[in-house]
Amino acid sequence: MQDEVILVDGLSKSFYYSKGLFCKGKVRTDAVKNLSFSVHAGECVAFIGPNGAGKSTTVKLLTSVLYPTSGTALVGGLNPWENRRDLARRIGVVFGQRSQLWYHLPVRDSVFLLAAAYDIPDCIAQKKWHELSEVLDIGKLWLVPVKQLSLGQRMRCEIAASLLHEPSILFLDEPTIGLDVEAKRILRDFLKKEATENKTTILLTSHDTEDIEKVCQRVILINQGTKMLDTSVQQLKTDFLSKKYVRLFKNNGDCECFAIETKNKSVQSFLKQTNLNEITDITIENPPLEEIIRTLYISGERHA
């Protein structure tokens, strides 16, 4: 039995808004509704869902930024809302749209401030930063003011800053948002390495399916604050693959693509009905994970 480092039970968060200047009562919005799940040590879990599904709210609840309306949670064995400061020492958090680096000052200054916040001596912080900078390719940015960094460079520095105190649990809220292909690749490789080599538990929210495929083993899908699905990435593909894409490359250079609904017709029977004399090559592909997730979102919204 593996240790459960994140244990969520019946977690709910509601926000209340006034109906209007002269109206009595308030409108309630349930951002998270009765959410329960657990994550084992060293596991990489993708927390996915359409915009407004409650992903970020859940991350903020588990990192003690928000107080829940009801429910309980244990993160690293701690209650996030009673042990905020102890929890902060055990977790690392990266919000794609937020920065913990000081805008006008060199990266070095922010690193030393974070080191002081976590009671890490400067020499150890610098050594750790050096290790991280080699993997994340940020070695040359030590003395560069944050305002002069590109988005990709800044995000890699953010990740390194979040790992300075060697957290055992890492929360990443859309860490690859706005990054170019190479920056995304570096980040994904790094996160995968961090999980396998250091056994860091990763909970990642992202709209980029490659993040999920490359980094995570498990997917939790939520929609309108409710858990819709909790399965492995591999199982997700197996269970929800209802289509195959068949590409036929013809003698004259044309290429035709067919989407075969496998529950109605097998690929084999499709090919039997096709005139293969004109064909020079055939490819058969599964739909990308993105399409599977899109289908899940749509069916989830209909269901809701």
């Binding site: 926000f15 970020s56 709210t57 903020k60 930024v65 928000l66 107080y67 749209q97 937020r98 920065s99 913990q100 680096l101 000081w102 805008y103 006008h104 000052l105 922010s110 944050v146 305002k147």
Partner: peptide, 14 residues
């Protein structure tokens, strides 16, 4: 502080 509601604006420190 218990009533704090987080937002999602893009922000930089400083």
């Amino acid at each position: 502080l218990k009533k704090y509601e987080s937002g999602n604006r893009t922000i930089l420190r400083g």
